[in-house]
């Protein structure tokens, strides 16, 4: 399987009709069927995104208009829901976003060098030990987090880091996220030519320098994939912050929503305002790095 990043712009896509020398008389029919196809695709897509559409438009509508017609566009739009959500006395949104950002950024900033250094080190070894270590690591991708949650909290208690941000970050570093990073990096390290590393060694460069100055620039697509997906997953994580952080340490955006929103469930305006503010950052992030996102997903799944 190749990656989607291969240029496919001018290619009549596979699965469709070939456009090799179409007989001229079929032109009008084709145009009609092309339009019909776009219409069908658009209709299906619209139904599919309806929940996100609801979240978007209703964040800018007052309660009575939401109930009267949830699908109507927000005209005239009101910012009441958003300002109310931002000025809550418990500071749910600003605090939640800040805490999530801290946890995600620090975790990813540490997993990337750990994961890539480990992958580089192990990819130059050979034999049974390497195979066994990689197998044990790949198991981390599959283990349900509920299975290790409680002992993880106990270990954090032993080192005095339970119910703390450093504890949550530490648990992120060693869990399945590291497995994912290693999984992606090892795949890419295989394509780094051995000659480059040998040449650098002859020039007197040691492992640390070769890794940082030569290998890391070569595996930049892997780093992009790891950074994008881990940021998203750690940002959206619910179980670990809920139990490792606990209710007293301030909330990440996901646990904050869960623990405080119950009482607002009939105030749709307020609810959609909060959801909009909580969801807008990952969506903006996705739209900016969309190309790498899809490329990473598909190259990762091809290996």
């Amino acid at each position: 399987m190749t990656t989607i990043s291969r240029d496919t712009r001018d290619r009549p896509t596979a699965g469709g009709r070939s456009t090799l020398t179409p007989p001229p008389h079929t032109r009008p029919r084709r145009r009609l069927s092309t339009r019909l196809r776009v219409a069908v695709a658009a209709a299906v897509t619209l139904v599919f995104v309806a929940p996100i559409y609801l979240m978007l438009v209703n964040a800018f509508k007052p309660q009575e208009k939401i109930l009267a017609n949830p699908l109507a566009p927000p005209w005239p739009p009101t910012l009441d829901n958003l300002t109310k959500a931002l000025t809550r006395p418990d500071n749910l949104i600003p605090l939640g976003l800040r805490n999530s950002l801290i946890v995600a950024v620090i975790s990813v900033a540490l997993i990337v060098p750990l994961g890539s250094a480990f992958s580089f080190y192990i990819s130059r070894k050979s034999g049974k030990t390497k195979a066994v270590i990689l197998l044990v690591l790949s198991a981390g991708l599959m283990i349900p987090p509920q299975v290790i949650l409680l002992p993880t909290i106990r270990i954090l208690t032993w080192v005095g880091l339970d119910h703390s941000y450093p504890g949550l970050i530490l648990a992120n570093l060693g869990g399945g996220y590291l497995s994912f990073a290693v999984f992606v990096y090892v795949g890419f390290m295989r394509s780094v030519p051995d000659e480059i590393i040998q040449a650098a060694r002859l020039d007197g460069a040691g492992g640390l320098r070769i890794w940082w100055q030569i290998v890391m620039p070569l595996v930049r697509p892997a780093t992009a994939t790891v950074v994008i997906f881990l940021t998203l997953w750690i940002w959206n994580d619910f179980l670990n912050p809920l139990f490792i952080l606990g209710p007293l340490q301030g909330q990440t955006i996901t646990t904050g929503l869960y623990l405080t929103i119950g009482q607002y469930s009939v105030d749709y305006g307020q609810l959609f305002g909060i959801m909009f503010l909580a969801g807008v950052l990952p969506v903006i992030g996705y739209l900016t790095v969309q190309k790498q996102f899809v490329a990473g997903l598909t190259s990762g799944s091809a290996k």
Binding site: P113, L114, G115, A117, F118, F120, Y121, I122, I133, V136, L137, G140, I143, V147, I148, L149, L150, P151, T152, I155, L170, A171, L173, G174, G175, G176, L178, S179, V182, R201, G204, A205, G206, G207, L208, R209, I210, W211
Partner: peptide, 27 residues
């Protein structure tokens, strides 16, 4: 070069250690 080798091995060992402490040990 040798100190560079050791540095890299140390980083790799740290990663493996974290995995052992926060995934294998809990298991």
């Amino acid at each position: 070069r040798n100190s560079g080798e050791r540095g890299l091995a140390l980083l790799a060992a740290l990663a493996l250690g974290l995995y052992l402490v926060f995934l294998v040990l809990p298991l």
